[in-house]
Simulated scan of single mutants.
Amino acid sequence: MRRILTRAGSVAAVSMLALALGQPAQAAQPAEGDTVSAAARATYFEFTDGTDTFVIKLTDPAKIRQARNILSGADTEHRGVMGTVVKTPASYNKPWTYHLDPNSVQFFGMAMEVCDASIAYVDEHLDEVGGALLPRSTWCPWQSKLTRELPRP
């Protein structure tokens, strides 16, 4: 009887070890309450409006996950990119003289006409953004489509 219990315990231990080793590795995620700088978790994505390309920076883990789901085809409802125009260039978004506030970026399926404009048109008329062009500086190019995730600059 003693030998049977020892063997059963050994089989259980080996099974648990195999199960634990067979699990996929998980990326280290900050525990709730841990602070990780936005720069440390920044992820960059490129989108096109059918003519030009534009780079956005995301720092919110949920938005990063959503962007990856869009690229993988898991999310087919939210293909467009929307956000608040910041009238200064960003090093990761050359040659454009503006960028989107990373905290404002959203993905959409449908949007109002008042926020639609091409990448180049916004750049050419940047002084008008926030007024008659793109009220509240909200930009939602209807033809926008995420194309890829970029390596960190």
Rank of each mutant, 00 (worst) to 15 (best):
I4S: 09
I4Q: 12
A8D: 14
G9F: 00
V11I: 14
A13Q: 10
M16Y: 06
M16L: 13
M16F: 06
L17F: 12
L19S: 13
A20H: 04
G22V: 05
Q26E: 12
A28C: 07
A31D: 10
D34G: 02
T35M: 09
V36P: 05
S37I: 02
A40L: 01
R41D: 00
T43F: 01
Y44V: 09
Y44E: 08
E46D: 07
E46S: 09
F47L: 09
G50S: 10
D52I: 09
D52E: 15
F54H: 14
F54N: 11
I56H: 03
K57W: 03
P61M: 04
I64V: 15
R68G: 12
A74P: 01
D75P: 09
T76D: 10
H78Q: 15
G80Y: 00
T84L: 11
T84H: 10
V85W: 10
V85H: 12
V86F: 01
T88F: 07
T88H: 12
T88M: 12
P89W: 04
K94S: 15
W96E: 08
W96M: 06
T97Y: 11
T97M: 13
P102S: 11
N103H: 13
N103P: 01
S104H: 02
V105I: 14
F107N: 08
V114G: 03
V114I: 11
C115L: 04
D116V: 10
D116L: 09
D116F: 05
A117R: 14
I119R: 04
V122N: 02
D123H: 10
L126H: 10
D127Q: 12
G131I: 00
A132N: 13
L134G: 01
P135F: 04
R136M: 11
C140D: 05
Q143T: 13
S144I: 02
K145I: 03
T147G: 06
E149H: 06
R152V: 07
